[in-house]
Nucleic acid binder design. Structure first.
Lengths: 224, 224
DNA sequence: GTCTATATAGCGATAGAC
DNA sequence: GTCTATCGCTATATAGAC
């Protein structure tokens, strides 16, 4: 950005975010030390304090940097959906999935980088992280829920919420647990190409979303 | 069990496992210290070394204690399935889901205890933990895959593996991210009763598994 | 088998020179 | 904006008394 500097290192701030993302993914938030992060970034330990205030601030910045553009793109794709089309459900589903898959594919370390971090993020014990993630996702979730409500009027608000939760779970698991999948499948599934996963996800999830309401439960479609 | 001891504390080993499970769930593996664990267990710090060798050994024991009975019960229920019945798929699905839901429901802290831990386990950065989980799950996964292969012959081995992965993901996410669900749904979904979740899971996942094979390829490839 | 006491190491954070 | 040096704290692990 700034041209007053010789480019001996691109940008302290950005280097720190890259290194932090990499080491948080590899070791977890608590286990990745600022010493290791600053060393990998090639900057001084004290730079964390200067640029982010604390480790907590660095964590927050690592998530915000990826989640904000991700959810912006989702909203953009959602707005481009034609909710009256025959494949409206698939369109909306893809508006949710594609930006995530694309982000993982384009991230520095692919599925072993921010993807793994994302896979852990919803069950992250760190309260501060959960707050950030919640804030970043709430609006997106609400918008997609509104679209699904229109497309799946046979489901109660409760069941619809659960189903969206399952969608998010399958996606998070897919993005975050590629390594375990490869191991457990004995090599049948390779995770090098996330686009394969996307195709499989889409057919599985759209069928699940279209399923009749769970038996023995009130099938109210009270309010649209 | 043993009657040679006065019951001033039930069992140091068991107390340690309970406390560790609770604190690992709440703070994560790395962030839960042995000091906090031994204090909550009401035993001495050095007892960890004596009974489990190290923190790593304690971690391993915490997972094994729950996962072994869980997967034993799954295998038992799977063997009781009638693969020629009309609802064979639902039977097999329930053989996978029910023991997990039951375990969570009966665990000391329910969904906030081992459940949260389980939700993180597949993307756990700790290599040792992943090894334990893998060893504990491999046989179970293979048996269920064999059953699904019979019931869903229209799917390639690869797509079938992915679908089983999605099933596991939805389940893990459901079990592990109840708190985030409640927050994101604005209170529409309460997670007090895991049996509700089970009914919703079953209808969603069985429809997903039955879906036709993924059409062509797709969607998010380069050049966007 | 359980305890106290401690060795050894690494942590996050910051003061202050440049 | 970046650095060195260090403070104060907590961690895991273990030696040795009982």
């Amino acid at each position: 950005m700034s041209e007053t500097e010789t480019k001996e290192h691109v940008d302290t701030r950005e280097s720190l975010l890259d290194a932090a993302e990499s080491l948080f993914s590899e070791h977890g938030l608590a286990a990745a030390s600022l010493r290791a992060i600053t060393q990998q970034a090639g900057v001084n330990l004290a730079a964390v304090s200067y640029h982010f205030g604390s480790k907590e601030g660095l964590v927050r910045a690592v998530f915000s940097r990826r989640l904000k553009p991700l959810n912006d793109e989702r909203k953009e794709m959602l707005e481009a959906c034609d909710l009256t089309a025959a494949d409206a459900l698939e369109q909306v589903l893809r508006a949710f999935l594609v930006p995530a898959v694309r982000m993982i594919r384009d991230a520095p370390e692919g599925v072993h980088g921010f993807g793994r971090l994302m896979g852990r993020v919803f069950s992250e014990p760190n309260e501060e992280v959960r707050r950030v993630v919640f804030a970043e996702f709430k609006e997106t979730v609400d918008r997609f829920m509104a679209a699904f409500r229109v497309l799946l009027p046979h489901l109660s608000p409760e069941e619809l919420t659960w189903r969206f939760h399952f969608v998010a779970g399958s996606m998070a698991h897919t993005i975050g647990c590629g390594q375990m999948l490869e191991e457990l499948s004995g090599g049948v599934c390779r995770f090098a190409n996330v686009d394969d996963a996307l195709a499989y996800l889409e057919s599985f999830l759209s069928a699940g979303l279209r399923a009749p309401a769970a038996a023995g439960r009130p099938q109210c479609s009270q309010g649209d």
